[in-house]
Computed example of a mutant assay.
Amino acid sequence: MDLDTLVAIDVHVHVHADQHGHLALDDELNAAASQYFKGDPYDPTVPDIAADYRGKQMAAVVFTVDAEAATGQMTLSNEEIADLAAQHPDVLIPFGSIDPARGVAGIRAARRLVQEHGVRGFKFHPSLQDFLPNDRAVYPLYEELQSLGVPALFHTGQTGIGAGLPGGRGIKLRYSDPMLLDDVAADFPGLTIIMAHPSVPWQDAAISVATHKANVYIDLSGWSPKYFPPQLVRAANTMLKRKVLFGSDYPLLRPERWIRDFEALEIKDEVRPLIMKENAIVALGLR
């Protein structure tokens, strides 16, 4: 990957379909998410994503979410995603996803994904995977990730998955409170943690955690920048200017729309390249 020629690194890109026609979300959740984001359903495969981002001169962190135990939907293969991403090393950075409920088997899978398939980090969605991030039962998995030297990306705040459905399809928002990650960051200081999204309704908490913990970053995915909470914009311009990362939430929110709205945001000129690329290089250990 030629970092110097990239215009941006998108740290939050979902693989919605595999090479066999299997989808990451079931029809009900997929439709609800598309309605929430006001877009048409689009289920890109890894090669689709590579072609799209290559055309944009961007790199993308790609992943699925292992939530089969909670949702009943078959999880897309981490191995397939990583191996396909390896065919496009100029633009794709593969992350894995492990359901913490897998216990020891999940720890072994994480180690194998890093050592044998080149996975560079892991994505967690506490609300969708139905777990508390600071549950001590999950700590052995974090210990393994810390030992492997790979970051952990956590969904935080509100989610479009299940939005508008009765009971939100049983998905609990409180599991994605960023204050739960303060415990994890404190107990695993060698683990890089990326808190995904503006963490509404806990934005101040996310800013506090990222300010206090050197190993914690924030990605700006999942929201058009024109809707960012003002305190997040202030923090990104000042004390968190080296802790905030560009992320889109592709394919539900496309990078071109995100960037268009970001260009209208009052962000200092010297901060823009940090958010769009330079901070991700540091957080992901790419250089």
Rank of each mutant, 00 (worst) to 15 (best):
K123T: 04
L265H: 00
F131D: 02
R108E: 14
G106P: 09
K226L: 07
E263L: 03
A205C: 07
Y42R: 15
T75Q: 14
F95E: 07
G121K: 05
I194F: 09
H12T: 10
D43W: 15
K213F: 09
K172R: 14
A69N: 07
M195Y: 09
P198S: 15
F154G: 04
Y36H: 11
V15E: 00
I194V: 15
Y175H: 15
K56A: 12
D261E: 15
A85Y: 03
N215Q: 08
D99T: 08
G285Q: 09
V209R: 08
I161F: 10
A17L: 02
A33N: 13
E278M: 05
V15H: 13
I49R: 00
L84C: 03
D10E: 11
A105P: 05
L25W: 14
A264R: 13
D177V: 09
A152V: 14
S224C: 06
D90K: 00
A152P: 06
H155M: 04
K243P: 04
K38D: 08
L92H: 00
S77V: 02
D66C: 03
Y142A: 01
L274Y: 13
I275D: 00
S34D: 15
N30T: 13
F122E: 08
S147G: 09
I161D: 00
T211N: 06
A31T: 14
D10A: 10
T238G: 07
K268A: 12
E266C: 00
E278A: 08
F188Q: 10
A152R: 08
I275R: 04
D27V: 13
I218D: 05
A152M: 12
E80M: 09
D261A: 02
A31I: 05
G160N: 08
Q129P: 02
G96D: 13
A137I: 04
R108K: 14
D10S: 06
D26Q: 03
H14K: 09
E143D: 11
M239L: 13
S221W: 04
T64N: 10
P201C: 05
F154M: 07
I49D: 07
F154Q: 10
V61C: 08
P255V: 06
A105G: 12
D182R: 15
G72M: 09
L76H: 07
K123C: 03
S97P: 03
Q146P: 03
V114P: 01
G106T: 01
A8V: 04
I171M: 00
K172I: 07
T192F: 01
A70R: 12
P151Q: 08
A82M: 03
I259A: 05
L181N: 09
L286W: 09
Y175E: 06
D90H: 02
R108L: 14
S97C: 01
I275M: 13
V200T: 14
F188N: 10
M1G: 05
D4Y: 14
K243V: 01
D43P: 01
A67L: 02
I9K: 13
Q35A: 15
M179G: 10
L92C: 05
E28D: 14
G247T: 11
L25D: 10
G149Y: 02
D27Y: 15
R108P: 01
A214R: 15
V282L: 12
T45Q: 12
T75S: 15
W223V: 08
M58F: 13
Y36M: 05
Q87H: 13
D90R: 06
